[in-house]
Design a protein around this nucleic acid. Structure first.
Lengths: 229, 229
DNA sequence: CCCATAAATGGGAGGTTTGTCAATTTTAAA
DNA sequence: TTTAAAATTGACAAACCTCCCATTTATGGG
């Protein structure tokens, strides 16, 4: 039994039902990332999670339900970690740069999650809007602080987000290295009206080490005492 | 028989085989736009094209083959029209703004094509790189003309393209109106280092009426539907 | 350790999908 | 008009899908 995914890790101290559910969700993340939400099949999810297909329907009413659970889980986890990483930053220029760079670093920590998020962001409007509302807050903060000279409207916010999504895709595809985050952040700041020199300086400032939290611990967990099968 | 799609129109003077093939491709565009390449079924494509499923296999070996034909066809058509619209523009600032705005206008002329392009651009690397090479040429032209102060590298080009894709999505989803093209172009020019005032002026200049060419025909009577999924 | 209950299993009904093929209809050249 | 080639049809096998459910297996409070 593998149980190395992030959902499984999060549920490792919960009851058996929650752990099984989490294993299904981890398998789903992997398949959603590869094939998309429509093309991934319940059969394949159960097979990848190493359980009978009937088990799936004990934990989820149907495919729609696991899609919802997975996308919500990914979005919440990303938002939580991002929020935590920026909790004591006031300067909007710093926040905006940090959001982009941290988001990319986080998503790349678990590429399957990153890929699933990429798909979900285009497919589910409410998830997208939830994420954009955080962005809007920081952009308006920057305007109020006098740092951004551009008008803040829906197109701007959406465009800003698209730049992040494009970078996420490039990183996941292996087209770009880790430096892409800083580069995109710099371009974003230029777009917003931050003087080029400051944009370059802020976007390339070294970020403090990311403090990992519960769910983000990787592999190497104690195997289940009961041998499988 | 409908035969109202762009491929059908392009093939309307060719032999019967080519016309049937084109009808299948038009149906495929519609389904690819709605469901994605993986989730669309051959059965449904044939049904939408009002022919027996066996006919599909006379014209295409399998689904992979029609996906390739459709994506290639869309990309070529868009590139051809864009190229024609900009043939006598020298100033890179104008070209870059025009490429974004014209592209969005074109894609919105046939929303199904736009949606299919949106999906294809993320799914097929060679198509994406083909499009990006046009972009690179104009960006380098602007640098050589001294209009852009930003360094031109892969991340910049990709980010620039992502801004267009984000706007395309927003337009197709009905989140933005026709003014979004000019707004995004303005943001792009700011990012590139064009002074804000000039960026605003160029991006909002009225474009000459687009001269339509062969394939880019007719009405689009379907009411604007929901985006993807 | 007992045993009520929760969890998991695996087979199957009923539907859809892919790709094939013999039979039929349409096309167009002579 | 004739006729051979080209195009189309629709039934079908085999694979695969979703969801159900009668059973078996595991868990944990008393």
């Amino acid at each position: 039994m593998l149980a190395t995914g992030l959902f499984s890790n999060e549920a490792r101290n919960l009851g058996k039902s929650a752990r099984t559910r989490a294993r299904l969700m981890d398998a789903a993340v992997e398949l959603f990332a590869r094939d998309g939400f429509k093309a991934a099949s319940v059969n394949e999810i159960a097979k990848l999670a190493e359980m009978a297909n009937g088990t799936f329907y004990v934990h989820f009413r149907d495919k729609r339900e696991i899609v919802q659970a997975v996308t919500l889980g990914i979005a919440q986890e990303l938002a939580r970690q991002l929020d935590e990483a920026m909790v004591d930053i006031d300067d909007a220029v710093e926040r905006v740069s940090m959001a982009t760079r941290r988001f990319l670093d986080l998503a790349l920590t678990s590429p399957d999650w990153g890929r699933a998020f990429f798909r979900a962001a285009w497919a589910f409007r409410d998830l997208r809007e939830n994420m954009l509302s955080f962005l809007r807050a920081d952009l308006e903060r920057g305007r109020d602080q006098g740092a951004f000279t551009v008008e803040i409207d829906d197109v701007l916010i959406d465009t800003f987000a698209s730049m992040i999504m494009g970078a996420l895709f490039g990183r996941l595809a292996g087209d770009f290295g880790p430096e892409a985050g800083a580069r995109v952040a710099e371009l974003q700041l230029r777009m917003l009206g931050v003087p080029p020199q400051r944009a370059h300086a802020v976007a390339n400032r070294q970020l403090p080490e990311l403090r990992l939290t519960i769910a983000a611990l990787p592999k190497q967990l104690k195997p289940d005492p009961v041998p499988s099968r």
